[in-house]
Amino acid sequence: MGFRDRGLEIKTPDQIAGMRRAGLVVGQTLELLRSSVRAGISTGELDAIAEDNIRSSGATPSFKGYHGFPGSICTSVNDEVVHGIPGGRVLAEGDVISIDCGAITPDASGQGWHGDAAITVAVGTVPDEVTELMRVTEEALWHGIGAARLGGRVTDISHAVESHVRSQGSYGILEDYVGHGIGTQMHMPPNVPNFGRPGRGPRLVEGLALAVEPMITLGTKDTVVLEDDWTVITSDASWAAHFEHTFTLTPRGAWVLTALDGGEAALTALGVPFGGAD
């Protein structure tokens, strides 16, 4: 592992394999949570399901205790965009919930490697505009990853995310909360914005791992942090969606470390080379 280009952490293939193990734990946990979401379940119950699955997989929840965060996942409902604290809130028919999950797995030397991903799930039937918001946000994530090439720049991803969202309608794209580098820590350089001109920022090189996470709203891009000092809500009470994956680039193409299939299906559908090792 080395550091270059203003503090970026560059991983060896073996270290990326360690991140893949963490990514699979995250991906499997999110699929379990997706199937567990229903009217009548509390966000605290979802948190307990997540922590049990992460720990039984030999990993540690990244979020629990991170700067004092009390949960193993973030659960953000309706106009809550990110960083919602799980607890007593009970989900109701017609809600949407963003679930953000992170896990750490150790390698043979004891070094921990992080995986980080998020999904937004509808609770039963939701309005068409909310279904469309979720579609646009998830597609923007894949367009961002699909724009990444070895030798390119970080904002190639940013531009692709923004361009897809803008092509689909009038939505708010959060600017104060962005994607990030990831590896031995959950949040590392560089930032990965969801907007901007292409061709800027650090160069995309083999061994760099990034978390891309569009946060899109039906209204404003402006947000407010609640009194719990964590939960981020839209300032106009418009609903939001949030999707995230951790990925890296190999000489063959993009490899999505938190997707169970490595991102092969979604990348192939976009006509983008799949770079996964499995």
Rank of each mutant, 00 (worst) to 15 (best):
G262D: 06
E129N: 15
V121I: 15
T75C: 12
A259R: 13
G27I: 12
E45L: 11
F69M: 08
V212M: 09
M215P: 04
D47I: 02
L204V: 10
D107W: 12
I99A: 07
E80L: 01
G201P: 09
P13M: 04
G172A: 14
T223W: 09
W255Q: 01
L218S: 07
G7S: 04
E138Q: 14
D95S: 05
E138G: 05
L249M: 10
L260W: 04
S42W: 12
V232G: 08
L270N: 05
F247I: 12
G201K: 00
L270R: 07
G271M: 03
S62I: 01
A117S: 15
L141Q: 12
D261L: 07
H242N: 15
H159R: 12
G87C: 06
P193M: 00
A22M: 03
V130N: 02
T268I: 07
G71D: 02
P61G: 08
P190M: 02
E51P: 00
L260T: 13
S238Q: 10
G181F: 15
A259W: 07
D116A: 11
R135H: 09
A254L: 07
P198N: 12
A160L: 08
L33C: 03
V225C: 12
G181C: 09
F247Q: 10
G23M: 11
D5S: 09
D47A: 04
H67M: 14
T217S: 15
L150M: 11
T75S: 14
G88W: 11
G172P: 07
S98Q: 09
G110T: 10
G253R: 06
G144C: 10
T75E: 03
L270D: 02
R149Q: 11
L32N: 06
G271R: 04
F3A: 12
A148G: 05
E264A: 15
R252G: 05
G40Y: 09
G169T: 08
M188N: 05
D236S: 03
N53F: 14
V77Q: 02
S235D: 14
I182W: 03
G196W: 01
V126W: 06
G84R: 00
E244P: 00
P106K: 10
A17Y: 02
R4I: 05
E244N: 13
G115T: 08
P202R: 10
D229H: 11
G179R: 02
W230L: 06
L141K: 09
S109M: 13
H242S: 13
R203F: 06
A266G: 01
V272F: 00
A108D: 14
G253Q: 07
R135V: 05
P273Y: 08
